[in-house]
Structures are given as C-alpha cells and as structure tokens.
C-alpha cells in the first residue's frame, strides 16, 4: 500500500471520528435562533381559516386542532374536534405528547393570532414538526366562515370563489350563530395518541 493511500485512510478515519464526536455535543432537538427567524418570516406556518374549514368538512384524518384558550372559553365555543390545552399548561408533560409526534398536522388557534404564535414558537423551539397556526384565530373564523361578507369594489373571480366557499362553509358550521355547544365537544373522547418512539439524536436528517 502506498504512503498516499495510508495518509488518505488516516485522514478519513480522523474526520470520521471527529464526526462521531461532533454528534455527541450537537443537540438536534433544539432549533437555533437563526432557523427560528427563518421560519418566522415564512408564511408557511399559517393555516387559513378556509384551510381549517376544508379539513374539518372533509374530515381530514391528519388534522389535529388545539385550542389554547382557557377551559372556560373552550367550553363556550370551539371548533369541531378541537382539544383544549391552555397556553399556561402547554409545557406539561402529558400535553406535550400531543405535539411530539409526526402523524398529525397540529393546528393551534386562540382568539387572535398572537397567543398561538407564542405557543408555535415554544413548540418549534422544542423541535416539534408539523405545527401550524390558524391565521387570525377564532376572530377570523367568525368573520370569514360563520359570517362571511362580500362587498367588492370591483368584481374579482377569486374573491367571488372565496366568498362562495365561505358561504357554503358557513352553512355547514351553522353560520350566524357563534354558539356551538362546548359540552358536546368536551364529552368527546380525546383522540388516541400515537406516541412517537423517542429516538436517539439523529443527524440533521430528520
């Protein structure tokens, strides 16, 4: 074997061991501020109210709705199938299990967007995948889905289609009335959790 061969093999062994070592002090479960900023700038973390409505109507099995308002508010009104996890209890172990999985697309909502954004940031920082926010929260839900308005200045095909959809959705969700019986929701058993097996820290490749 030539000296060059030995040198290359030695070099590769050293870098290989370096790689193994770097794995140990690299915590991939956390998201760096850099990545967090990138994700915050992007609009991909939002589900529009229409997306949520479509998913509920079509009974999308991958949708998991999380209501982060207080239990009182949840009992008064919430979305169909939503699970109540108040923001202050977000970091409880039994609640985190709802987010620490990669089966469902978790959509968080509150009254507006800001509380959901806080929850989204905490969960993303924890490294959980498929966490989304309902854009505008329940206020937007009421405005867009339950009581849709249509008063365009100029006729716009897109706007009209959107309005048609909203009108249909409004009918489906019993529009006009914002009161849906929360008790009915509360009595509904929580979705069975599919817990993700805790894996060892894998590399960057998720």
């Amino acid at each position: 074997m030539k000296n060059l061969d030995k040198f290359i093999i030695g070099l590769m062994l050293i870098t290989g061991i370096w790689l193994l070592m770097s794995n140990n002090n690299n915590d991939n479960t956390k998201v760096s501020p850099h990545e967090l900023q990138q994700k915050l700038i992007q609009r991909t973390r939002f589900y529009t109210t229409e997306d949520v409505a479509k998913a509920i109507i079509s009974k999308d099995p991958s949708l998991q709705l999380i209501d982060i308002r207080t239990a009182d508010e949840y009992n008064k009104f919430t979305l169909k199938g939503a699970i109540n996890i108040p923001l202050k209890d977000l970091l409880k172990k039994e609640n985190l299990d709802y987010f620490d999985q990669d089966v469902y697309n978790t959509v968080i909502f509150s009254n507006g967007s800001s509380n959901s954004d806080v929850a989204w940031m905490i969960l993303t920082r924890l490294g959980y995948k498929n966490i989304y926010i309902m854009d505008g929260g329940l206020n937007a839900w009421v405005d867009n889905i339950l009581r849709p308005k249509y008063n365009p200045i100029v006729w716009d095909r897109k706007q009209e289609d959107l309005y048609e959809f909203r009108k249909g959705a409004s009918f489906y969700f019993g529009g006009g009335s914002t009161v849906s019986s929360g008790n009915e929701q509360a009595s509904k058993p929580k979705k069975k959790l599919i817990k993700r097996k805790k894996k060892e820290v894998t590399g960057g490749c998720g």
Binding site: I9, M12, L13, G16, I17, L19, L20, S22, N23, K199, E200, V201, T202, G203, G204, C205
Partner: peptide, 22 residues
C-alpha cells in the same frame, strides 16, 4: 434512510461505512 431504518444516527452509519471502505 437506511440509518433511520436501522435505528442509528447518521453519523454512526457513516462511520460504519467508512470502516467497511477501509
């Protein structure tokens, strides 16, 4: 991803391939 299927980290898998290569 073979490493994931075998339940090991990517780094460890690369190291094993490295040993096989040598």
């Amino acid at each position: 991803n073979i490493a994931e299927k075998l339940g090991m980290s990517n780094e460890l898998f690369i190291f094993i391939v490295l040993i096989i290569a040598i």
